[in-house]
Design a protein around this nucleic acid. Structure first.
Lengths: 223, 223, 223, 223
DNA sequence: TATGAATGAGGCTTCATTCAT
DNA sequence: CATGAATGAAGCCTCATTCAT
């Protein structure tokens, strides 16, 4: 009855307010885009009033930036740790990285963030630069390491790692985007497992060092 | 006879108005998104006043839909014609399709449209369905035809064409999106030619039928 | 074939333009009110283009005033002539005036004008004053003359003619307004003949001098 | 205890906002018509800003409908209660109804509403139907009851009640309309008391059953 | 005369932001 | 901390009016 320690459930909720707001904002920003998202809807979805939002964020733009920043970094850290600790063949690493990346990302907010940054990068150049450096550059670097390591160890044939990294990442990113855009209106939805299996299949065959005789067709294309 | 029926420069402008407005709208919608684009800016960029826009389009939404529709269909038609008329190996067809698609698309508005639809599909479900059926389904079908044809002719090994089609298309789409989003803020820009060469390289190696002995790598994937 | 005398049908149409525009404007102003009427609709209904309207009228307001003025005066003249030339009992004159007024007015524009002035008098004080003086004052005076004449001749009992005139005119005006307002949405429409018969019945009984036996005046009404 | 739970003057204002807005809107709609009334003016007259209006009403049209509905029904209820509870002669009831109706209506918004509906019924068919059924039909029914009751009790002569009801109501309605339209610009304004006295006089003489001697009931009404 | 494309002021409506409680 | 009523700037859209042909 004293005021020494209040209701703990209440206490926790107060601590969580910013997180709840960020989560609500993420959903709505992803669903509708920055401009079409109303702060009142964000507040309502977080279970607070419109005014409360301004106790935690300065403005709509500031909320948007917080949403992006707070959802990005943890995931990247995790992925890099996975690559660093890996033991085994490069093909296997590639396979695991892709699969685990998807597992980690599939039901997180990163899919939405990716789409969001794609859509709004034009309106928030500063944020776009931040995203590029913190996410894209690091993801790319990870993939380059895998490729170069594989080539150095003779597991992969010689390819242009700088270009190939983006080619291999692209289908993963597209899978993330698909969920957030046309997924809902596709008649035959993508099966992520089959899709990723095909990607890995293509990569491993496509990067594989050993080729039997007679595969001379490609030479002409590769210059 | 030369000036008998004068072709007034005014007359031509009138005919071109819708096109000019569509072009201006495309630029701005792509740059800023649907909601953040002001019709007055569209009009100004097209060299007319705000009201003039409404002589040609019923509303902002109607303008948006027209932008999407008018930019999409011609390119798809062209691509399908290319596939239909192709003579030669499947690998070569794949290569040509990718390269020419990019050539056709690079300097058209289709890159922007793709990004736009990605960003706004949630706000325009009807348009998203239209886009999905008229563009995505058709593109996918084209790629499936190529893959299945290649497999039937023994040029490609057996793969899951339904999944693989999207894997192969993904890097092309990503290239288009890149241009419209992070391209401008990337320090080391993508070189489309190298990127596409890597994609084709990966595909042709990855789909190639003939493998020498000892390609036991795949077994591990099915694990 | 020469150009001496053009197509007479065409010539006539040109002369009629203002009338056609006034007629179209009357319909629409009455139907929708001044502000809600678009000049483009007026022009279209008159079979000309929007610009043409400005060859004949300076502005929307000027068109509105012309509509009112051009439809009012002729009708009043006719009514006054009828009263001036009347011979017979006052009761009969009252009956004839009411019936003929309705006949003359029922399918003319005056019903609409009346409603229009009722609605817009606040927005056009100058026009309202004009209407009041040219229509209302003259109508009232007509009715006062009939009443005073009837009283002077001993046919009507003594009443306050100044007040009674408006009481008697009111039902006629309401009949005009009804057509233009709730008439279309009434389930059981007013039968003008029965309505006016009741009005005349009420007036003649209500004004009748003799209450003793021998008030045979009414018999003529049932005629 | 007095200031324990302070009843802030602010709180009361909040509750009253809708009423204040409705009152302001009524004035302006009546004065200028629906289309010519600007919501900013309504808000200003109610002492709030433009946006505040939308906290209470969805749209201009919704505000308009609320104005009509909120002003109409109470008065009708009151009038019907008066008729239901009446004791005395039918002539007296008629007299009282007319006089009290005017008293109740004269300083309320109903005069304006009547004019407003007359003017705007064409633009709001749904509202017009509502008004017709809730106001006109009920008013008419009230008058028919009085007439039929009077006839049944031998106080009134036999008349066509269906037509007569509208004839008797018409002058009352016209008095309301006059106030809102030409009243302000008439040189010799109507004196409502004299006008209504004439109406009652006409009705009672016009409906009176007995034409023989001894019909002295009316005399008391006529002063 | 007649056209109809073009204009731009003005009104309705939304919503990010503020602030008294 | 929390609320939600209030604000007012800004954008979409309409339409009276103009003007080159």
């Amino acid at each position: 009855m004293s005021e020494a320690h209040k209701e703990p459930r209440w206490e926790r909720r107060k601590q969580d307010r910013p997180q709840e707001l960020l989560a609500a904002a993420l959903q709505l920003f992803v669903e509708r885009g920055f401009a079409a998202t109303r702060l009142e809807d964000v507040a309502t979805r977080a279970g607070v009033s419109k005014g409360t939002l301004y106790l935690y964020f300065d403005s709509k733009e500031s909320l948007f930036k917080s949403v992006v920043r707070s959802n990005m970094l943890p995931l990247l850290d995790e992925a890099e740790a996975m690559v660093d600790g890996h033991q085994g063949s490069s093909a296997e690493l590639l396979r695991q990285l892709i699969m685990r990346w998807w597992e980690a990302v599939a039901h997180s907010g990163l899919c939405g963030i990716t789409k969001l940054m794609m859509a709004e990068s034009g309106n928030f150049p500063e944020l776009a630069r931040f995203y590029h450096e913190e996410i894209i550059v690091r993801s790319d670097a990870m993939m380059v390491r895998i490729l170069q390591n594989g080539m150095a160890r003779g597991e992969f044939r010689q390819v242009d790692a700088e270009s190939m990294k983006k080619v291999i990442i692209a289908p993963v990113v597209m899978l993330m985007l698909w969920d957030q855009s046309f997924g809902p209106c596709a008649i035959s939805p993508i099966d992520p497992q089959a899709y990723l299996a095909s990607l890995i299949d293509l990569c491993i065959h496509g990067l594989n060092q050993s080729h039997g005789p007679g595969d001379d067709t490609q030479k002409s294309h590769n210059k």
